[in-house]
Amino acid sequence: MSDVTTTPSGEYEAQLGDYFALLKPRVMQLVVFTALVGMLAAPVSVHPVVAFASILFVAVGAGASGALNMWWDADIDAIMRRTASRPIPSGRVQPSEALAIGVALSGLSVMMLGLAANLLAAGMLLFTILFYAVFYSMWLKRVTPQNIVIGGAAGAFPPVIGWIIATGSFSVEAWLMFALIFMWTPPHFWALALFMRNDYDDAKVPMLTVTHGRPSTRRHILAYTVLLVVLAIGTGFTSIGGPIYLTAAVILNALFLLGAYRIWRRDEVDSEADNFMVERKFFKLSLWYLFLHFGAILAEATLRPYGFGGWS
């Protein structure tokens, strides 16, 4: 019996799952969750069908920018262990297919979000796709060690888009959610760079660990974490915060700060000795950190109609 995934000439033929992997499903999960929280935290209710369609098109837009990123970065993805099994470097999808899917889904998602929600939300989605695919992937990533800092904005826009879907306008609360992800991104990725150390060196991506050294990266993680802690706890006193958020933020930020302090105190000898255990734990905690902060904002918004959420 012949293998159904190969052509008669023996070449592998891409399956639907391979194309789906182009859209970076794990990043899409984060985008969907933060955009949903942004939309539900807004003081305007959205019809469930409009809400579902809008979040779906934001997710498709995020996936499209992921496909464009994979198309552009196929050369360095092939070098890095973490990304070598992605659809293009592993030969499952052709680069031209990734480009076509990225461009087509970008256009479709922006157009449909404009029709489903409003033109401002569609404009922000287009800006986010261009920011990630062009400004970050094609330029910043290979030029400056600040790539993660500035590029982090691309991942921070979804809650702003969610807010605009509901309200049709910007607001301070939306930008606070943006700032939370924006300030969280550098410590999250620098911790990853510390324990995936050879990857970025081999691919010649100017990560902070490569350009400024590892002790400097540890200092940067601590500095950004301190700023993040102030921002995250301060958000608790705004209209999207409340007792639930503040309690979660105090606990999570204490743990996060402790993790950053431990990373700062260590040197390479300590890290080598336990195979970067502290850095790995900090990275795992960072995932929970963001999820629980937005989960707390969602809890405040959900309970507000029943008189429990928020400060009032």
């Binding site: 159904v4 995934t5 052509t7 008669p8 033929e13 891409a14 399956q15 639907l16």
Partner: peptide, 14 residues
């Protein structure tokens, strides 16, 4: 045709 069998999953998904 052989291509219909090979691409059944893809076609169904799309």
């Amino acid at each position: 045709h052989e291509i219909h069998t090979r691409r059944r999953g893809r076609n169904l998904g799309i």
